[in-house]
Design a protein around this nucleic acid. Structure first.
Lengths: 163, 163
DNA sequence: TATTGTTATACTCTATAACTATA
DNA sequence: TATAGTTATAGAGTATAACAATA
């Protein structure tokens, strides 16, 4: 290795310490929280995150189209299609004909799917509460408000920078 | 246009509406915030998230070992090694011999790496401020405190459930 | 022509572990 | 024996687009 000319140890005037950089900290937090939830639905049943989410929103018993499901959990049609196929394979979901539009079907949980949901949902919600239990009532309210604000601001920034 | 604005009526006794499920909302927020930052370091220079983070922590000019870098940004040694290799290829980083331990090297930014950092860091920090500008001073303080609490709680839960 | 959903394909990420060279 | 780092490899996840059936 030739001793390439090395620039002096100049701090850039703008310091960027990851430990105080909000997007980084948010990613660390999200990753940890996600893992702690995933522990439950991958440990007790072998579900992926997509499958778990689909199970959750179908847990009401209502039949929904693939498109509707994708919209509810922000999933591309291709990913939705694949996750649904796997769940049909595992007999967690069945397809029902949609008489009003033969291009699509309606998806609903089988009795086994419902059973899994009834077992899983309380455990997952308990873990959520366990997480949030560290916060006071006030803090929970603040958190909700702050997250909503940040989310719309983040969306606004992206739209704006794309025009 | 789907004319069915039909809301689910049949809730199971434990309701799990993704829109009010904290881990889900956190994931949505993190994803949006991450994307809005990535827009900058992938758009202006072709960096991955790992590469951007390494650039950021080396921005002080200080030389660090691969292990040290991995610890600072929570990256496995394998991923660290690969990201560093790519950055050496792009001439953003050079290896310097570590005389005290010949198993490892010290990594530091090249003059080009420093130049990229000096251009990128202010843009990224500006975007962070743009995001946070939607919050009041109070809210920013609350956010920091709440995130710290949630992070340690999340870690505590995972440790606990693994024993 | 547009929309719903499926399939193909290529690409990126990740996780595990074997391997080397030092210590 | 343990540690720093590299390389191999397989699996998971993602993105783009072509496609069939229906509207």
């Amino acid at each position: 290795m030739p001793a390439d000319n090395i620039e002096p140890k100049l701090d850039s005037n703008v310091s960027l310490d990851m430990d105080h950089f909000f997007p980084y900290k948010l990613t660390q937090l999200q990753s940890s929280v996600s893992d702690s939830i995933a522990e439950i639905y991958t440990g007790h049943f072998e579900l992926t995150r997509h499958e778990w989410r689909i199970l959750a929103i179908l847990g009401t018993g209502k039949a929904l189209s693939a498109k509707h499901i994708g919209l509810m959990i922000n999933l591309e049609k291709m990913q939705t299609s694949r996750a649904l196929a796997k769940m049909i394979n595992k007999a967690l979901i069945i397809k029902v004909e949609d008489k009003s539009d033969k291009r699509s079907s309606l998806l609903k949980l089988t009795s086994q799917g419902l059973r899994v949901h009834r077992e899983l949902a309380p455990m997952v919600l308990a873990r959520e509460q366990d997480l949030l239990s560290i916060l006071s009532e006030d803090e929970r309210g603040q958190l909700k408000q702050i997250m909503d604000k940040l989310f719309s601001q983040s969306k606004a920034i992206q739209v704006q920078s794309k025009s």
